[in-house]
Amino acid sequence: MTNLFSSFDPSTSFGLSLNWLSTMLGLLFIPSMFWLIPSRWNFMWIKIINILHSEFKTLIGPNHQGSTLIFISLLTMIMFNNFLGLFPYIFTSSSHMVLTLALALPLWLSFMIYGWTNNTTHMFAHLVPQGTPPVLMPFMVCIETISNIIRPGTLAVRLAANMIAGHLLMTLLGNTGPSSSMIIINILIMAQLLLLILESAVAIIQSYVFAVLSTLYSSEVI
Rank of each mutant, 00 (worst) to 15 (best):
S179L: 12
S93M: 00
Q206V: 00
T132P: 07
W35P: 00
H126W: 04
P129D: 08
F34N: 05
M44Q: 05
L25I: 02
R151W: 13
N82R: 06
T215I: 10
L21M: 12
K47R: 12
Q192K: 13
L155E: 15
F29S: 14
W35D: 02
G61T: 02
L198N: 11
L16R: 15
I187Y: 06
I149C: 07
S13L: 14
T100L: 01
K47F: 11
K47D: 13
G61V: 06
P62L: 09
M182P: 01
N186V: 02
L18Y: 14
I204E: 00
V98N: 00
E55I: 11
I48D: 09
L69D: 09
G166I: 02
V141A: 06
S180T: 07
I30H: 01
P134A: 13
T215G: 12
L21F: 11
W20T: 05
P138A: 07
N81W: 01
G131E: 05
I113S: 04
W108T: 07
P138M: 05
I90T: 05
S218W: 13
M137Y: 02
P31W: 01
S181D: 15
M190G: 02
M97Y: 05
L198Y: 09
N82W: 02
E220T: 13
N175H: 12
N118S: 10
S179D: 14
I49M: 03
S94F: 00
S67E: 15
G174S: 15
S179A: 14
N19V: 03
M140T: 11
I78Q: 05
I187V: 10
A104H: 01
I51T: 10
I70R: 14
I30N: 01
K47N: 09
I222E: 10
P134N: 14
F29G: 02
S11K: 12
I37D: 07
I164F: 03
G85K: 01
